[in-house]
Design a binder for these strands. Sequence first.
DNA 1: GGTATTGGATACTCATCAGTATCGGGTTGC
DNA 2: GCAACCCGATACTGATGAGTATCCAATACC
Lengths: 181, 181
Amino acid sequence: MLDAAAETFAARGIASSSVSDIAHAAGLTKGAVYSNFDSKDELVLTLMTEHVLDRLHNALAAFDAAEDVGLAVHDLGASLVEAIHADLTWQHLLFEYCGLARRDPTLRAALAERRKEGRAAVARAIERIAAARGVELPMPPADLAVAMLAISNGLALETGMDADGVPDDLFPRLIALIIGQ
Amino acid sequence: MLDAAAETFAARGIASSSVSDIAHAAGLTKGAVYSNFDSKDELVLTLMTEHVLDRLHNALAAFDAAEDVGLAVHDLGASLVEAIHADLTWQHLLFEYCGLARRDPTLRAALAERRKEGRAAVARAIERIAAARGVELPMPPADLAVAMLAISNGLALETGMDADGVPDDLFPRLIALIIGQ
DNA sequence: GGTATTGGATACTCATCAGTATCGGGTTGC
DNA sequence: GCAACCCGATACTGATGAGTATCCAATACC
């Protein structure tokens, strides 16, 4: 059900997907949706929350792998880029969701909360890796976390507008410059 | 008329603004809109095109000012940040527009074209400034232009999700690190 | 001064979509 | 076996919004 919703949203966007569309994609009807969720909004919220947690989990796993296996910072960036590419559609969904949240105080608060947690988790991961490798960070881990997320999202946005001209390895190159190798 | 549309879009978003809303904001009615534009889509396209050109023009003016007055790179970044802050709403409109374009091949092509031009203009400005100051760029100007636009947009996105935790001066600090002072 | 043109108003149509009410059929518990 | 209960289907409602048809008035043009 949530999978069907995810597919539909990916194909048509959140706002342009009707509840019927979603139900149909799941091989069911509207009634089924409304017997599982109170409203379309709740469905969206559930789906996004779940996926955001997934993404965060994956990203942190990548960090941990980097720590364990001893990848260079550059390679870590590359592996993140790969994840981003595979997940471009999702990132664009997040952008739309972000736009929706702007006009809905409840949603906005919920999103801000989760985002804070996500940033904090990334910040801790950065700090851990830096400590493990003896890397001197050029700014507080929290700011660095914001920067990494922003660059990742910004590049995804740019890719969405015009995929040519956004080199695949731009992200790791930027990270390397910011970290100072 | 376009001003009214811009205000309405800023307040309610593009998709959630009805043609009546826009007309009303202009002190007119739907008929007036449809006697000036063939469709809502055309109105949106006109408005966004115009505003994108404005933004580009302003950004380039900022670059030129930097060159003339001899601001440090850091200060240039700060002045850009100011422009971004003032224009946050607009940037969020661009994100929504970008999402709309994803599902409309015509729109997508138009947006990609304008984006390419914008990036090229920024790249030329960067190259010019670097040459004027004898700064050695860490990567091709084109890539640097993409990076700057991406970081600016990424930070705007992040600010939209949770304004706290995105320091005002993060952008110039990142630029400084990337350029290497 | 009279006619054509244009910018805008009013009042529709038509489609879409969130949400509701109600019904059926299968499963679970007794 | 029977009753309570879900889960899902069907068939609505009500609202909204894009787009259209038509009319009106003011201005421009001859």
